[in-house]
Amino acid sequence: MASQGTKRSYEQMETDGERQNATEIRASVGKMIDGIGRFYIQMCTELKLSDYEGRLIQNSLTIERMVLSAFDERRNKYLEEHPSAGKDPKKTGGPIYKRVDRKWMRELVLYDKEEIRRIWRQANNGDDATAGLTHMMIWHSNLNDTTYQRTRALVRTGMDPRMCSLMQGSTLPRRSGAAGAAVKGVGTMVMELIRMIKRGINDRNFWRGENGRKTRSAYERMCNILKGKFQTAAQRAMMDQVRESRNPGNAEIEDLIFLARSALILRGSVAHKSCLPACVYGPAVASGYDFEKEGYSLVGIDPFKLLQNSQVYSLIRPNENPAHKSQLVWMACNSAAFEDLRVLSFIRGTKVSPRGKLSTRGVQIASNENMDAMESSTLELRSRYWAIRTRSGGNTNQQRASAGQISVQPAFSVQRNLPFDKPTIMAAFTGNTEGRTSDMRAEIIRMMEGAKPEEMSFQGRGVFELSDERAANPIVPSFDMSNEGSYFFGDNAEEYDN
Rank of each mutant, 00 (worst) to 15 (best):
A233E: 01
R441Q: 05
S335L: 06
Y296S: 11
R55H: 14
V329S: 03
D480K: 14
M136E: 06
M440C: 07
R150F: 05
P453G: 14
E73V: 14
V109A: 13
G462S: 03
V476F: 00
N319C: 11
L315P: 03
T171R: 01
I201P: 02
I444C: 15
G212L: 10
V280I: 15
G300S: 14
G460C: 13
D255V: 10
L56R: 01
Y296N: 11
R446A: 12
F304K: 01
H272I: 02
M32I: 05
R118E: 10
G404N: 03
R382H: 05
V285M: 14
E375K: 13
N395C: 11
M426C: 15
E115D: 13
S486K: 02
T130S: 08
I116F: 04
S170V: 05
F346Y: 08
V242P: 04
R65A: 06
G86H: 15
S326M: 11
E292I: 13
V312T: 14
V155N: 07
E80C: 13
D255P: 08
R55D: 10
S407G: 11
R75G: 07
R8H: 00
Y111G: 00
S457F: 01
D497Y: 15
K7Q: 02
E292N: 03
I194S: 01
C164S: 13
A451K: 12
H272F: 04
W207G: 03
D468P: 08
M239G: 07
S287R: 15
L466F: 14
W330P: 06
M189E: 06
G180W: 06
D203H: 08
A263V: 09
V285T: 08
R162N: 02
D372A: 06
V109Y: 01
G268A: 08
A218H: 03
P161H: 02
R261C: 08
L226C: 08
W207N: 07
E375D: 14
Y78H: 15
M238I: 12
M163N: 00
T147E: 09
W120C: 08
P283Y: 03
K91S: 02
H82P: 00
S383V: 14
F304S: 05
R175Y: 01
Q399A: 10
W386N: 03
F291S: 14
R470C: 02
I444S: 01
K325R: 09
A332S: 14
A234N: 07
R382D: 02
E220K: 09
V109W: 03
A70Q: 03
Y385L: 09
A271F: 10
D127F: 13
A373K: 12
M43Q: 03
C44H: 03
P354M: 02
R382C: 11
E107F: 04
F489N: 02
K422Q: 11
N397G: 00
K31N: 11
A271W: 08
S69W: 10
I194P: 02
T146W: 01
A181I: 00
T232C: 11
S482C: 06
R8F: 00
W120L: 07
Q409V: 14
K293D: 06
S335C: 15
G93R: 07
R174Q: 03
A263R: 00
R117F: 08
I406G: 00
M426Y: 00
R65M: 09
G54S: 14
G200P: 04
N309W: 02
